[in-house]
Structure formats: C-alpha cells, structure tokens
Nucleic acid binder design. Structure first.
Lengths: 216, 216
DNA sequence: GTGGTAAACGAACGTTCGTGCTAATTTCCG
DNA sequence: CGGAAATTAGCACGAACGTTCGTTTACCAC
C-alpha cells in the first residue's frame, strides 16, 4: 500500500511539470531526478511512458475538479452557480493551481493535431468539463434565470473561449487579463439574463448593462 | 544564392511540422529525413536548434500575415475591414493554412510558462498581431462605425479569445465550431456598432440583434 | 577549363531518451 | 519474528537527440 502513496506523489509532481513543459516534455529521467528516485523504480509504477502520461492527465483532471469545479457547486443552483463557476475558473488560474497555467488548455493545443490515446484522454476530460458547464447553463435556464431562447452550447462555447483567452493573457503577465475576462463574462451573462423585475431600477440601455464587480 | 531557396524550403516544412508537433517536437533529424537531406547539411543553415526554432517562428509569422491578415486589408477601413479580419481569421483555420491549427495559439500555450528567446519571439509575434487587431478596432471607432465608448483593448481581448476558442473546437472536429465563433463575433461587434440610421428597418430587440450570415 | 567559394554530406561525438532485466531492500501479514 | 510480496535500485541496451568535424559535391567568376 506504500506504492499507492508514492504513485500519488509522483503524479502530483508530474502534473506540475507537464503543465509547464507540456506532456511531451514530461520525461521519466527528469521526473525521477526531481523526486530523487531511480528511473527504473519510478518506471515500474507505470510500465510505459504513455501510461505515465495518461495517469498524469487523469491526476490533473482530479486536481481541476477538486480545486476549481467542486467548490463552485456550493453556490445555489441556477444563475448564481453559473457565475460562481466562472469566477472559480478565473480564480483557479490566478491561484496557480497548475504552475504552467491551465493544464487542459495547454494539453488541448499540444495534442490537437495528433491522434492517439493521449489526445483522446485530454479530449475526454474537456468533454466532461464542457458537459458540466453546459449543465450549469441549462440549470440556470430551467430555474428561469436565463432567457429560454439562449443556445446552451453556444454560450458554453463562448465562456470556454473567454477562459482560454484569460489564461493566455494572464500567462503573458497582463495584469488586466482577469479583469477583462470577468468583464466579458459578466457582460455576456447579464445579456442572457431574464430581467429580474424585483430589482428593476434603472439599468443602462444600449451597449451593455454591466455590473462593475471585480473578480476575486 | 542557392542556399536561400533551400533555407526557405526547410522553413516551410519546419512550420508545418511545428504546427502539428509543437516547436519542441520539431527535431533536426526528423526535419532532415522529411526533406531527404542530411542532418548536418540542414544544421549548417542555422547553427543551432534554437536558431532554427526562432527562424521557424518568423516564417510562421510571414505565412500568417500573407494568408490571413493582408488579404483582409483590401476591405474598406472601419467596420467592414474589422469584420473582414475576423472572417479571414476563421477562414484561415478552415483552409488549414497550418496543418496543426493556428500556429501561434499552439506556440503561445506551449511556451507560456517557459522564459527564453523562443517564448519572447512568440510573444512578440502575438503582440504585433494584437496590435494590428486593436488598430483595426480603433479605425472603426474613428470612422464612426463603432460606439466611441467601447474599450479597444477589451474588444481585442474578446475577439482574440473567440479565435482561440474557434481553433480549439475546430480542431476537435466540431463541425459547428466556426459557425458558433462567427455568431459570437458578429453578435459582439453588432452590439458595439453605432446604429446606422440609413438602414434602420426592424432589428430584433432583446438578447441580440444578430444578422444570420454564415462564415465563408 | 580552372580556381575558389558555398552548400551538402557522412561519420562520429557525448547525452538523454524509453525500456528491459536482475538484485537488493522495504513493507506487510500471520 | 520470519517469510512472502511489493517496491525500489542498479545496470545495460538500442535509438534518437544536438552538435562538430573533415570531406566531397555543386556552382560561378575569370
């Protein structure tokens, strides 16, 4: 049972390295040296490099769910939860959950043109995440918080794109990156929101009726 | 002078390979074999692998400008040109200008956490492109086509994010990817547009006043 | 045609890659 | 405590990596 803990430790480090150097840059020798153990000893846990890479993808998915997604589920379902997910996403890159930025953004672009098990694993993880995002949007519609006419997949596409853009800009030391992303996200969501008559008040008309809140 | 032509041919192939395998996956042996020439003969043109990578980035930038950006400049300045640039971007990934999808999206994510000359070169190319995009937006404002209140950098950020998202989805064989991206882009631009009283007509109100045109 | 320069080649360098084996060590259970 | 099982280490391998070297080929001016 000791092996399981060691394996977990290996994978945590593997995820960190892969998020910076890429999954192809993740090398057994480098990883072993980093953990101060022998190549062969480490190797024995996986049997092949590809298996190590696949396990790394899965470990990254776990971390993503634990650090970014699950906490957002505490928010009440519907619009608040959808907003919480978006906020949590930006927070997750800000906190540096992966030292090299969003693991899956990087991995997706790294393997997009290369068929094989790793590409499939990354794609599957992204499918799960996008599915969860779509579900959150659908719930917000069902709760009557979002306009019934909005296209769920379309909105998920746009939000996901903004996440990628946020990660890109943030990694380029653009201090305004997350602020911009948050503004865009909020604007997009507010525009799809069903008018809440209770707080009708005087919303601005025209370009955008945007709140001014800043991300965490 | 023969060497210059050879070098150009090498770089064209190098760009193709790097767009699929990544700049780190671009290997001298592989490239030489692909071109049916000796490693040493090829190597002599660059002096080091890093120099080859840097030259590859520059060659990719050239191709990007030639195939995607310059053609869009034929459109009249202002809103039409901005729209033409966006359309051209989507078309450029659809046409497979780079076999592995947008070279710079991939390279940006590959090197975002790794300081060094290559990261700098990629970042510089992205800066030039984003600068050009911002300029197009600013021109559209100056021409009175876009609302004067819009934030140029904010809009550029959002468009760029949508391009990345489009590339991501398109590379995943999502047939609707470019359609969605186009819809989002057009919606975002229409919302920032100054109302053209001449063609007032009956635009839909509410969520979005979106035209239904499909991308090329 | 001949001489000189530029371009491409082939072989080899030292490293590092992933991957087998086998031996030593540690851990766990009765 | 002792022995079986799981875990780690040591070592060797073939291949590929970037790079250097000396040599040969191709081309162009005179």
């Amino acid at each position: 049972m000791k092996g399981a803990r060691t394996k977990q430790g290996i994978l945590e480090r593997a995820v960190d390295i892969a998020s910076v150097e890429g999954l192809e840059g993740l090398t057994i020798g480098r990883l072993a040296e980093d953990l101060q153990m022998s190549k062969s000893g480490l190797f024995a846990h996986f049997g092949s490099r590809e298996e190590l890479q696949l396990a790394t993808v899965e470990a990254a998915r776990q971390r993503f769910v634990d650090e970014m997604f699950r906490p957002a589920l505490k928010a009440p379902r519907g619009y608040p939860r959808l907003l919480a997910i978006c906020r949590s996403w930006l927070d997750y890159v800000k906190r540096g959950v992966f030292p090299g930025g969003c693991f899956f953004a990087a991995a997706s672009f790294e393997f997009d043109g290369r068929p094989g098990p790793i590409r499939d694993a990354v794609a599957s993880a992204m499918d799960i995440w996008l599915g969860a995002l779509e579900k959150a949007i659908r719930l917000a519609k069902d709760e009557g918080h979002l306009d019934k006419r909005i296209d769920v997949k379309q909105l998920a596409f746009e939000l996901n794109a903004l996440f990628f853009g946020a990660n890109f800009s943030y990694m380029r030391e653009d201090k305004r990156a997350l602020g911009r992303a948050w503004k865009a996200i909020e604007g997009r969501l507010e525009a799809s929101r069903v008018d809440d008559q209770a707080e009708a008040g005087s919303r601005g008309s025209g370009v955008g009726k945007r709140a001014a809140a800043e991300p965490a």
